[in-house]
């Protein structure tokens, strides 16, 4: 069950959103309930304190109160780290990237035409429902790059391989459609990984599930994204063993 909270300072718009959300829940028979629809951001925080369900928040950015939507979202995020936050906004206030970064906003609903809003709300609810079920079904293991107090996390499934960079003390993480260069050492990284990863070379750790082809004559691995990794002679047997276990 997901509790839905709506906070919007304009009563008319609040009613409109509430109605749209209620309709969508009815049509799709979603496992959600509107817990609160209010113009007062503090009421959201109060109500949040005594709920145990995961929350879905629709927040206006300009709340005409002592806190704005972003601050409210940050406080909510602190209380419920895994909740879903969606912002309601007009064009001029749009700063999606910043909000996504700061409070991991899921989406934005732009206040333009009533039809578009309705459509977008419907989409968002379905998206949340899908994310909610997958969240409960499998909790993926992730690799976390810590950086001051921020962190970047990548699913193990998504990682192809790690490689020492030409730049001193730096590691390149190759994922599907993503490359991250960060400070670190392969030795330390090895401890954070699980059985599917293997150090096949002094400067490479590969994900065995991401190997497309292994060429033991040329001593290299073709990964699923077309890149190649070398195999060191002394790790050849270990790698063979690992791959035959599949």
């Amino acid at each position: 069950m997901i509790d839905i909270f709506i906070c919007e300072d304009n009563q008319k718009q609040l009613d409109l959103f509430t109605q749209n959300i209620r309709d969508s829940i009815m049509i799709e028979e979603l496992d959600m309930e509107i817990a609160l629809a209010t113009t007062n951001p503090h009421a959201v925080l109060d109500r949040l304190a005594d709920t145990e369900n995961l929350g879905l928040f629709f927040l206006d950015i300009d709340l005409k109160s002592d806190i704005d939507g972003l601050m409210l979202a940050q406080r909510i995020r602190k209380q419920q780290p895994r909740c879903f936050i969606i912002f309601l906004t007009s064009h001029s206030e749009m700063s999606f990237l910043t909000f996504q970064y700061k409070v991991e906003a899921l989406d934005f609903i732009i206040k333009d035409t009533a039809e578009h809003i309705k459509y977008k709300i419907h989409e968002c609810l379905l998206d949340v429902q899908q994310k909610y079920t997958s969240l409960n079904n499998n909790i993926n293991k992730t690799f976390v790059i810590r950086h001051a107090d921020k962190y970047i996390s990548i699913d193990f499934d998504d990682i192809l391989f790690f490689e020492t960079s030409n730049n001193i003390h730096k590691i390149l993480l190759h994922a599907h459609k993503r490359v991250i260069e960060f400070n670190g050492q392969l030795k330390e990284i090895e401890h954070q990984l699980d059985h599917r990863f293997y150090r096949c070379h002094r400067s490479y750790i590969i994900n065995k599930d991401a190997i497309a082809e292994a060429d033991f004559d040329a001593m290299n691995l073709l990964m699923k994204n077309g890149e190649t990794c070398p195999i060191a002679v002394r790790h050849k047997r270990g790698l063979r063993k690992l791959m035959s276990l599949e």
Binding site: N166, I168, H169, R178, V179, I180, E181, F182, N183
Partner: peptide, 23 residues
């Protein structure tokens, strides 16, 4: 970037967007 130790360079393709991030 090779001269700096305090930077994470993140390159990603997502939703047909090419994204460069520097932390």
């Amino acid at each position: 970037l090779s001269q700096y130790q305090n930077i994470i360079w993140d390159t990603e393709i997502k939703n047909s967007c090419f994204i460069q991030r520097l932390h």
